[in-house]
Design a binder for these strands. Structure first.
Length: 434
DNA sequence: TCTGGGGTCCTAGGACCC
DNA sequence: TCTGGGGTCCTAGGACCC
């Protein structure tokens, strides 16, 4: 059984913790430059203010109804989020932090009879400890837990909803639209409708292979998940595979120096994030856009990327390269609205070791060995000492794959990002927590 | 006038290898 | 003239998520 905990109107709830007078008032939180509405209290939703709406279109409605508006404060939200997650972890050891305001729980260890009581208790205590109201959905798969969470928000008095495979679920699925299902958006919903599948129940009953042909393996998984057969599992905390920092400008910018100033800032922020997850990056990309909403303006958007000679986390080094990329992208006579940087090919710093022939390289350490398995045993010892118990696979990529498959079943697939010219490659590829 | 920011995964197809 | 089998690697583009 899986649980999904979702903070209600998270950003608004955070603001309310520090200003209890807002509790019963309509509140919205705005994006960068106060451009869009990105969070709404229930009262604001009731006024018909949609998610992601440009503020200027709703100015009048907001003024008329005395809606409180707040610029976003991500430092605060990040901090509140970790308070909630830490509290959750206190009750349930196996959790997956899915987003800033959501976490999946593994409920295997909780007795089925008492799940409801347990969830009600967790919900109550999370509120007591953090001031954040949450909803909890429970189901046999992540997809159904997600759906249960939606039901909890709509139809539950205690904020908890439990879905099981039953006639009742059939009825619920018949009454929902395809887009209510996690992983299905407009594009796929339309494709499904084109072959006569009009609601989640019909999707659940459909031929998984046919769905795969239509909308890829992701869709096939959804079919099984709706039947209560898990295809998705809890994922631990993993390092980011890419890090983006970008902003729209409040005003239009057209000179290169201003763009450089902004870019330097964003690179510094991105490099900070990179270091905070103890990683290095091997490549970056820079992009710029004009304002796509100003149809009369000449439009231009472009991006360029560069691969570093060595993995790095140095702000200065990355800024240098980013400026070079900007030089190649910048065209005068355009009004720029947005610039951003993406760090790519991200690798864990401590995982960056190489064995080639009989040379073992780990950071700046180079050691020669006469026996290859000897190297691996020593590596394993030092890694175990640092990180806890691990299993080490070594050999050519093909051999690694075979061994992993023997242990983990046939679902394991070598991904291109694991490639390496050497015997060992990405941490994930050769090591596995046992 | 004003229109967010940051992610992940999957596929197809060509190049290439033994 | 015929033309295997099994694979990796890479990229662009398209979906989706919060």
């Amino acid at each position: 059984m899986y649980g999904l905990v979702d903070c209600n109107n998270f950003y608004v709830s955070c603001e309310r913790v520090f200003n209890p007078l807002l509790k019963t008032k309509p509140v919205v939180v705005l994006s960068n430059n106060d451009g869009c509405i990105i969070a709404r209290s229930n009262e604001a939703k009731a006024l018909g203010i949609p998610m992601g709406a440009p503020l200027h279109l709703y100015k009048e409605l907001i003024n008329k109804n005395k809606v409180f508006t707040y610029s976003s404060n991500y430092t605060l939200y990040g901090d509140m989020s970790s308070r909630v997650m830490t509290s959750l972890n206190f009750f349930v050891p196996d959790i997956e932090i899915y987003s800033i305001d959501e976490a999946f729980l593994s409920l295997e260890k909780i007795n089925g009879v008492t799940v409801l009581d347990e969830m009600v208790k967790i919900r109550k205590l999370i509120y007591q400890w953090t001031g954040i109201p949450v909803s909890i959905g429970v189901g046999p798969t992540k997809t159904l837990a997600k759906l249960a969470n939606k039901m909890a928000k709509k139809h539950s008095s205690n904020g908890v909803y439990i879905l099981t495979i039953s006639k009742h679920l059939d009825k619920i699925l018949k009454d929902l639209s395809l887009e209510d299902i996690w992983g299905i958006s407009k594009g796929w919903a339309n494709r499904l409708k084109s072959i006569g599948i009009n609601n989640p129940f019909e999707l659940q009953q459909s031929d998984p292979r046919q769905i795969r042909n239509l909308i890829s393996v992701v869709g096939e998984r959804i079919v099984y998940e709706l039947r209560g057969i898990p295809c998705l599992t809890l994922e631990g905390i993993t390092a980011k595979q890419s890090i983006t920092v970008s902003r729209s400008f409040g005003n239009i910018i057209n000179n290169k120096n201003d763009l450089k100033k902004a870019l330097a800032n964003y690179v510094a922020r991105a490099a900070e994030k990179l270091r905070s997850q103890n990683s290095l990056c091997g490549a970056i990309s820079v992009f710029i856009h004009t304002n796509r909403f100003r149809k009369k303006d000449l439009q231009y958007s472009n991006s360029a990327s560069i691969i570093f000679d060595d993995l790095t986390d140095s702000t200065n080094l990355i800024i240098g390269k980013a400026f070079k990329l900007l030089e190649s992208l910048y065209l005068p006579n355009y009004n720029y609205k947005k610039i951003g940087v993406v760090l790519l090919d991200i690798q864990k710093r401590e995982h960056n070791f190489i064995i080639q022939d009989n040379l073992f390289t780990y950071g700046n350490t180079k050691k020669e060995f006469t026996n290859k398995s000897d190297i691996c045993m020593k590596m394993l010892d030092s890694i175990n000492a640092k990180m806890g118990k691990m299993t080490l696979f070594y050999g050519s990529q093909g051999i690694i794959k075979q061994r992993k498959q023997r242990i983990e079943g046939n679902n394991w697939k070598m991904r291109s990002s694991y490639r390496s010219p050497f015997y060992t490659t990405n941490w994930n590829d050769i090591l596995r927590v046992s």
